[in-house]
Design a protein around this nucleic acid. Structure first.
Lengths: 207, 207
DNA sequence: TAGATTGTTAATCGATTAACAATC
DNA sequence: TAGATTGTTAATCGATTAACAATC
């Protein structure tokens, strides 16, 4: 499994393949071709084959891909085969909604700590986690080996939270606040705010 | 304002520029250069200029862009200068969290209706909106001229909801369910699910 | 005028798609 | 064997960046 130079576009598609394959697993489907995957995902089969081929030879000519095997391989590639701990900063409505995102799955990627500043909320239980004061962030990141931070605080506080997450050693940030953040080049930042998505959709809905 | 052939990448960046410019407005900053914007957004200034130039000549050589004017222009381009109604399907935690996303802004893009199937929830108020049964969807889309649908139902129901939204005449869908949806080519679909984002981030957090 | 910055063309870079030999 | 489908190279397509004349 050598990695010549994987583009972000490729990495972003792997979870999509994974999800589709897991659905096939539930249906007890053993084997799938890039053509069939392409149909289900509305994608070009050549692209799917090429994406997978960056990481190894996972298929069999004339047959296709063995679903179980490919699921395992993609999990390995994405590092979802080992535990990945996530911190959630901001226990508002959105934070609470996201906090139970994998409560019912056996994923190794999971939320390990929740933070806020509101004294009313601190000490409160959300699922099995106690909301902690944000001053516990640095200690907690160390303690739980947290690698990813999710930011669901109001926009004006988001950059400050990002700075603290980076300082604490987090390597990936998923930002839900409607603001553009700046982080060092070694930290991976993804934006997931509704506003931007809706504004982009608005462009396309003219008659 | 002629539009030769605008790529999705360009459209996705416009809301980011808009948000940054609105922040500058709050600071009473009158004028900004593509270089300064690039600094704030960690982007190449040439790209910003080129993106904007697709839609017109908004800047002044030697000066830069007038902030207020550019805000208005981008709003026009994105069609945020007229009202855009959104339907939210799925009044779970995430749906409720998203429902008040613009409660405190004066945006013309706003959520006009909320749907669910749970009898316990129907009739309940969320902000100023009453949760309706999903069978009201088609009628409500007509009545409120709804153009965009946001899907926050459990994954197994998401495709069914998408089909109904499309059937009802919606032209844009923002899907939060962790599943790949298929829609006709004239409907614009964006995925906003946390799972995919976190899985992609997991790839980058190896040591 | 000198300095700054746009709009735009040309050059570069990268990503997607088509095609096909290899092979199950 | 014949048909199917991969992995991969080559061709195409599109997006980003650099450079610079125009001009405020």
């Amino acid at each position: 499994m050598k990695t010549p130079k994987i583009s972000e576009a490729v990495v972003r598609r792997l979870p999509v393949y994974l999800r589709c394959l897991q659905l096939l697993q539930d249906l007890n489907i053993r084997t799938v071709s890039s053509y069939e995957l392409g149909q289900k995902l509305d994608m070009n089969p050549a692209q799917i084959r090429k994406d997978l081929a960056y990481f190894g030879e996972f298929g069999r000519k004339g047959i296709g891909y063995e679903v179980d095997y490919l699921v395992e391989k993609i999990k390995q590639i994405l590092k979802l085969d080992r535990s990945v701990n996530v911190a959630l900063v901001g226990a508002g409505h959105l934070g609470i909604a996201l906090s139970n995102y994998n409560r019912y799955t056996k994923e190794k990627l999971s939320i390990a700590a929740i933070f806020d500043t509101d004294p009313e909320k601190i000490g409160t239980l959300v699922g099995s986690l106690t909301i902690q004061h944000i001053d516990e962030l640095e200690r907690s990141v160390q303690e739980h080996d947290i690698r990813i931070g999710m930011i669901t605080v109001p926009a004006p506080y988001a950059q400050g939270v990002a700075d603290r997450l980076v300082q604490a050693g987090v390597k990936g940030i998923l930002n839900f606040a409607p603001v553009s953040l700046l982080v060092p080049p070694d930290v991976h930042l993804r934006s997931a705010d509704v506003t931007t998505e809706l504004h982009a959709l608005a462009y396309y809905i003219q008659e």
